[in-house]
Every structure is written in C-alpha cells, then in structure tokens.
Design a protein around this nucleic acid. Sequence first.
DNA 1: CTGAAAGCGCTTACAG
DNA 2: CTGAAAGCGCTTACAG
Lengths: 326, 326
Amino acid sequence: MADIAAAAGVSPMTVSNCFKSPHKVHADTRSKVMAMAATLGYVPNLIASNLASGNNRTVAALVPSLRNSNFAKTLEGLSDYLRTRSYELLLAVAEHPELEERVVRGLLGRRPAGIIMTGSAHSEETINLIRQADVPVVETWRDTAPSIDMAVGFSLFDAARDIANMMVGKGLQHIGWAGYNDPDNERYVQRRQGFQQAMTEAGLRSDLLFHTPESAGFATGRLAIETLTRQEPRLQGLCCVTDVVAAGALFECMRRGWRLPEQFSVAGYGDYEIASEVPPGLTTVKTNGKDIGRAAGEMLVQKIETGRVDSIIRKVPYEIIIRHSL
Amino acid sequence: MADIAAAAGVSPMTVSNCFKSPHKVHADTRSKVMAMAATLGYVPNLIASNLASGNNRTVAALVPSLRNSNFAKTLEGLSDYLRTRSYELLLAVAEHPELEERVVRGLLGRRPAGIIMTGSAHSEETINLIRQADVPVVETWRDTAPSIDMAVGFSLFDAARDIANMMVGKGLQHIGWAGYNDPDNERYVQRRQGFQQAMTEAGLRSDLLFHTPESAGFATGRLAIETLTRQEPRLQGLCCVTDVVAAGALFECMRRGWRLPEQFSVAGYGDYEIASEVPPGLTTVKTNGKDIGRAAGEMLVQKIETGRVDSIIRKVPYEIIIRHSL
DNA sequence: CTGAAAGCGCTTACAG
DNA sequence: CTGAAAGCGCTTACAG
C-alpha cells in the first residue's frame, strides 16, 4: 500500500479510503490511485486489515468427511451464500473425533467471524474451546437444541419414521433395516430409531436390523438382504439408512430376479442422483443439503453482523419422493 | 497475550517464546505461563502472527465443484496432508469461470502460502493475478506443462485410449462414446480425444459420439444408448466419460434385458464405489484422487518451505480395473 | 533465560 | 477531500 501511495503521490490513508470508502475521495485522485494499483497488481492485504479493524470476513467450517455427498452439498450451499456476502471459507475435515480439538484450535487461531459444524457428536473439550472463543456457531443437520449456539436441519427421526410408515401402509409385515453401525454418528442412530418407532407403533418386529461400517457403502444393502432373509425368510421389505445402501439392495434384488415392488420393497434416504436412475426408481426421503448450507450461512452472517438471529433453530423441510421400489 | 503476560507476571515476549520456542524459556516460568494460558482459554492469534512474521500457514484451494467426487477426494487427500504439516485450508468453490477472478482476488487477499487449483481452463486475468502474487501454485488433474507453476495428475487422454483399446481388443466393431459437452472442461475433452484416437488407430468409426450437459449424470448413459443405437443399430459397446454415465448405461441395458458382456459392453471411468456394485460390475479406469491431493500438498509445501521442488510435474498412476461389463 | 524497541500492513478516530 | 498519529497482536533482532 505504501508503494502505491508513494507512486500516486498521496498518503497511505487516501489509498485505504479509495478501497474502503471510495466516495470519500475525490474522483481524480481515486482514479489515479486505482490505476496505479492496477499496474502494480496490488491486492489489499486482508489479514492486516483484519488485525487493524478487528473484523475478519472468514467463516470456518468443520466437516467429518467430504465423501458424504450431503456434506458436500451443504458446503456448496454455504460457499455460494458466503460468496455473495464476501466471506471466505476456511475448511477443516476431521474424520476422527480425537482430531477435532486440535483442528478446532487451528481454526480458532485464525479468528473466524463464525463457525459451521456438521454432524457427529462433539467432545466436551471442543465445545468448551468454542464457547470460550465466544464466536457465533451453527450446527447443521440438527434440529434439536444446539449444543453451542444455533442449529439448522430437520428431524432425521421423523423422516425415517415417515418412510417406514409408508412401507407399513403398503401392508408389509416383515420389514428389515440396513444401516451403518457408527455409534458416534447420531444421525444414523436417529434414523434407525425412527424406523423402529414406526415398526413398534404398527405392532411389527423392530429387531430385524443389519449394520456394517459406513465404508461398506453399496455392499451394505446386499449383505443386509443376505443376512436378514436368513434370519426371517418372510422378509418383504428393507428400509435403508441411505440411498447408496438402498441401491446396493436393489442391485441384489436384480441379481436374484426379484420384481419390485410386487415381490420385495426397498426404501432409501437422501434422494441422491442414483435414486431416480436405478431401476425401478427408488422411493426415498429427499433432504436438501444445499438449503441447509445456505440457511446455515444466513443465520451465521445475520448473527455476526447484527448480533442477533430470528430463531436459534431453523427447520429445513424434507419430503418423501415416491417412485417404484415400494 | 498481554493479559496472560500480566497475569503470569512476565513480558509478552516470554509468553510468545513459550509457544514458539519453548526450549528458550525456563521450565518453571513456562509452566506458569502455560497454566495461565489454559485457564484463560487463550488461543494464539495466528493472523497477528502471520502479519508480524510474514509467514502464513494457510493454503488456498480453488475447485469448480464439490459434487464431483474426484475433487472431493483430492481435497480430502490434500486436507489430510496439510493437517500433518499444520497448514490450514482456505477453500473457494467457483463453478463459473466468470466468478474465478473475483474468487481468486479474495483468496490472494488472505496472503496464502500456496494455492491449489483444480480442473477447468483458467482465464488470462486469473493467471496474471496469481503470477503477480508470486505464490507457489499446483494445478491438479493435469500432467501437461503447468500454466503457472507446478502440476500433478496423469494423462486423461492415455487412460481413455487404454480402456477404449480394451474394447477394440475384445473384437468390438461399433463403439460409441457417451460424454459431457462442456467445452471449458478440458478434462472431458481429453478423454473423448483418447477414445477417438483408439478408434482411429483401429480403423473404426470415431464419430459415434453423444453428449449432454454434466448435470444429466446417469441419464446421459441411458440417452446415449437410445440415440446411438438409432444412429448405428449394430452398436456393440459404449465407452463413457465417467462411471456415473456408465452406470446409467448399465441400468438402461437392464431395462432392455441385454446380457453383458455378451450382447453389449460398457466401459467406465473413475472406479467410483458404484463401479464394483452395479451388476455385472463395471470395467473402468481407476484414478486415485486422494493420491493426487496428497501429492499436490507435498509439492506445494516443499516449494513453500525450501523454495524448490524435485520436479515441476508429478505423475500419479492410473490403472484399468477389469470386471464384467466388458 | 528475559525483555525493551521497532515494525508487519492496515484502520480508527481525528484534525486540518 | 486529505493525512498525521496511534494501535491491532504478534515477531524479529537484539541487548542485558
């Protein structure tokens, strides 16, 4: 900045004003300064600006994984919104909860204006660390009382119960669950509980459960059919924790030559792209990750800029998409 | 920092040393300072540190999309590596090339120690902007001469030619291509050209091409079969720009009751999870996005810290995975 | 081993 | 409309 001030024959203060409050400076000097800045390829140093002004237009996001397309969509929705508000995104991926504290410490050191957290249970230390930093936080994919500050999402429990109820409504009597067995992941636990609730309410067995680690992906659906049909040969349908698992189940049905939905029913979760393309089309819960990301950005920026927010919890709708697997 | 210096009865300089060069300070004063820091919940302000020391442990990454699982994997590999080296990741998603310059300006303002760019053609302005900033840059998913500084990837052309050659080797005479028609995306163009090269070398038609926008996803495979079989009823195989397209083609084959590979062959690209699960198993090119991300991180950090790098271009291997679709 | 001085590149709050 | 002074929270390069 000093360079361009010298080159343009003005004070650094005037250069600063050209960028921050252009109306405060005479058009002639402004154009001289801007021309100089352009030829020197000057880009204002935002970190010096942050330090001096005390406001940092960056938002930190903590996600457990980028593989998960829900989180990828959330991040895209967030990123799109932040760009419109000229905030930058500082991203940290912490697969293991043990890494979390160290990672959060790294983020906090950059003094972000706000933090977005996604999924997973958070440790006591992490939560304390963030509380002490006294920075706005929104937890995504959550509609229950936020553990720190704000939350945005929908009830995973309700969504799973709704689609399981659809299976009950079709008259199925023997319905299994194919899920992932990560106990740290409360989102998976909530879905399974929603399924079980629906079964219990209908007076059906709620213990036809099959779980694998999340890494199994498509294979989970196949293995669930193999295992649960041995356990209950009258099995008529499978309710799945994600569309990936459901697609795996559908592939297994194809291999076995089962006709859907006459001989067997499958329900998914997520409405991923594959849901509409895999024959015969997957009936599933549509969850809008991008909307969650945008809503999280809106809440966070509102809190950062005004100090308050309309509501501590924001709900984003989900819907059941009916196709032909059920 | 001043607070904890006062509370511990030492100078700010000593507090700074406790964090940066713990060996330089007496164990007793150090433990007193650290205890004070812990009770006050002090996290060093890295942005002030950056400004004073002139080195900023953050790396900026520019990606066109997070939906693309190749890029998500690259980012994960990069993020994992950067964490081990205590660098933070500043992420920007710029779908449209027009946004690129503005986004890059935002990143540069944060004075990152290095930049990772992914995919897409970059505009002249963007390239000049980055050159002027004089910061190390690695372009990923590219094995040709870097447009700015360094590159890591493999030949998308070679990989596509190799798998197309496998189809030729099976004796197929009428082979089509199903791709995406984004001319800005040189990665898609290179794959199509690899396919065409193989066809030309084998003396076969290289003009059985079908394209849709990338957003069509699975549908592209289905539409390609519908369109190309009308154009060439003897069509025996389809070479696809990604596994998603190939899976869409496979679903269409199932709907038509075609047996693979006897009646029809399909080749994919990417070895996504779906490739191994969709019946009858997709023969495809395995590309390791995570390795590319890690290699990009290694090159960049080496350049940042030593000022030089072993090689300006690094190749990451790909391989053909043989299953039953071909 | 400890700390006083100067400065990183900006901005805030003024005075002219 | 323009700019001199002081300061953001650290670090560098020293002196003690």
